[in-house]
Design a binder for these strands. Structure first.
Lengths: 207, 207
DNA sequence: AGCTATAAGCTAATTTTATTAGCATGTCAA
DNA sequence: TTGACATGCTAATAAAATTAGCTTATAGCT
């Protein structure tokens, strides 16, 4: 019999025997899958299928599903940092902060799986989580730059950055898990929170 | 040979043939395990071991590991509501809010696994997540009562509650995943955030 | 062009974990 | 006392990740 290859390969194009996998491609596919199905149900089987290969093939490029998850966190942090930087570009003060916070929220809504990947604790004692930590720094850098014009003391600024991140992340997380009950007026609530934060900040910088 | 029972049963006390399992006990043990090892690595094997039975025995009381996770979320929400209510008791205004926020944060630190269980999205279309949603309402009720004295409009109050939760939850989550980098001055940052929130609230209620 | 070392994919096997089947016995109500 | 049901066990099954070992495409040399 003529070489069974029923499992949905490309029927026409004589199927290349190399699929051209690489780590970056795997991570990107994993991100799409996570966005579509949820980070928690990311698995090797579906990922391989999406890439048109058999599950064991992935192991030529990544060590384990857990490594894929770690890479996803790093990738997500980079994407987020880029998105935020873009949102802040050409704006300043109140505008910039509003835009960054809004972009943060959009990112989490559009890429829920990827955003979830960011939430995994990176064990500081594990050198493999180094990259992830570095990528998170980039996100911080954007916020830092955005808050700079408020002329806070460096200590106050740390507090303010932490508060802004907490607020934004917390809102997103609760929104994503349905923690707010009715989704009524979520946009208003978000604006309310950012406004209150900004008012506090302005009061502080004029003091 | 005399009935192999090498697997660590109580050697002395002739071992009762009923272990007295029940759902509540299973959930409580699961919570302890989750706190000790992390919610993500909760598994049937270890849970059964901790309860002194074989894994299949658990299935006489719960349908699946996933159900255990759901129950854990419900249990956690109840515990949290109780904790917050206790913290608010006998206080009012600024004091009450500070106490509740502080208790929220303590809870998450002391019971990290259980707190993590609360973060799972409860599918609204799934009737099994009904209880969980009800328990979350209890948490909300405490916050509602705590904010009542500020005399906000009912819409503002919704926003304020959402903000407080976002802030607190976000802070906790970032703290737990090491998102803040150096843990330096975390307490100060938390106080700063709550203070800024309260100032905004007071300004609003006196307007 | 031909040669070879390596890398990349595959199938088959192993491992680990959750879950189900089916049996044996403790417990409780009549 | 007895019989029905509940609870725990062992053995079997299932699903998923991972490893072993084989085959062959491909890049770099000559």
């Amino acid at each position: 019999m003529a070489q069974s290859r029923e499992s949905g390969r490309q029927p026409g194009a004589a199927r290349a025997h190399r699929a051209g996998l690489d780590e970056a491609g795997i991570v990107r596919a994993a991100a799409e899958l996570a966005d579509a199905q949820g980070f928690d149900s990311l698995n090797v089987g579906q990922l391989a299928e999406r890439l048109g290969v058999r599950p064991p093939s992935l192991y030529k490029h990544v060590a384990s599903l857990d490594e894929i998850r770690r890479r996803l966190a790093t990738y997500g942090a980079c994407e987020l940092a880029t998105t935020l930087a873009r949102a802040a570009m050409g704006k300043s003060g109140r505008d910039a902060i509003g835009a960054v916070a809004g972009a943060y929220r959009c990112f989490a809504r559009e890429r829920p799986g990827l955003y979830m990947a960011l939430q995994r604790a990176a064990d500081p004692s594990d050198p493999r989580s180094q990259e992830q930590r570095a990528a998170s720094e980039d996100v911080l850098a954007v916020l830092h730059a955005t808050l700079a014009p408020y002329g806070l003391s460096s200590e106050e600024e740390i507090h303010a950055i932490r508060m802004l991140r907490s607020l934004t992340h917390g809102f997103i997380a609760l929104e994503a898990t349905g923690g707010f009950g009715i989704p009524l007026a979520l946009d208003d609530s978000f604006r309310f929170a950012i406004d209150l934060f900004l008012r506090g900040l302005e009061q502080m910088s004029s003091a």
